[in-house]
Computed example of a mutant assay.
Amino acid sequence: MKSFKRGLGFVTTTLLSVSMLFGCAGGKDTPDDAGSGGTDSGGKTVINVTFRDDGIGENGSFYKWLKEMSAAFPDKSVEIRPAPIQASEGDYFAKVALALKSKDTAPDIVTEDTFILNSDASAGYLEPLDERLAQWEDWGNGSFIEAMKKGVTASDGKVYGVPYNTDSRGLWYNKDIFKQVGLPEEWQPKTWEDVLNAARTIKEKAPDIVPIWMNMGKATGEATSMQTYEMLLYGTGERLYDG
């Protein structure tokens, strides 16, 4: 069996970038109640930022961050306004895709996963940020690792987003169960066969315990396709089935 490919941890495969901020080519002169920003009745420029709200609302950290950023914005004639969409992850992607089709509904800035970047950039929905980023000290001083920069670069070689977080995938195990079946509590597998052997041991000695679990099926969406199967492909470089 092939050895684990190492990421942030001993069995962690790093997902380069998950949630991104993308500059959107939405119109700036549409009414304030439309999707994209504009100028309100007081003459203030409004920049709408669309993101997925998983039900937390104004208590969400991203919502609070946007409000704090708006309050601290040096130009007081500009307001950064949260425009959350409460939806499941899959529904959020669908709603954003529909919103981007018209300048009347497109947000000024939208949060997306990097795997959508190429299609939206190719469709002309996104505005390249290279000129702006060239003037931003943090972009060139090492604050963003090259892998994250690559994640927001489309196939045309232009940068369309700024990452604000990233995450990783890991293999977790229960030390109590390992101790119960005689497996080492400090377990550091070096091959996939080590993982399978541990699962076989648990199945044999503790048949009521599920030995290994992964997201499966359509209901979990990206958690199945990307966070499970794609991670297994990264970790093995092989087919995920035995012909």
Rank of each mutant, 00 (worst) to 15 (best):
Q227W: 13
I209R: 09
A123N: 11
F144T: 09
K103I: 07
L16S: 08
N165S: 15
K28F: 08
S88C: 04
E204A: 15
G42A: 11
L126P: 01
G60A: 09
V195Y: 00
D130L: 05
L16Q: 07
T236H: 07
K150W: 10
S3T: 11
G37T: 08
D176Q: 15
K44L: 06
A71Y: 03
A94F: 10
E204N: 13
N48T: 08
T166M: 08
L196G: 05
Y173A: 05
W172H: 10
T220H: 10
F178M: 12
L16D: 09
S88D: 15
M231S: 05
A25C: 11
A71I: 01
V46Y: 04
F115Y: 14
D104H: 13
E193K: 14
G170Q: 03
E79A: 09
T166P: 01
D194G: 12
P211V: 01
D120I: 00
Q86Y: 07
A94P: 01
E185H: 13
G26Y: 02
V181N: 04
R132Q: 12
M69P: 01
I116N: 09
A123C: 08
Y92L: 04
S225G: 09
N141I: 04
G27A: 15
S143R: 13
P189G: 11
G124P: 03
C24A: 12
I80G: 06
L100D: 00
V152D: 06
D156C: 09
D108Y: 01
K67D: 11
G142N: 08
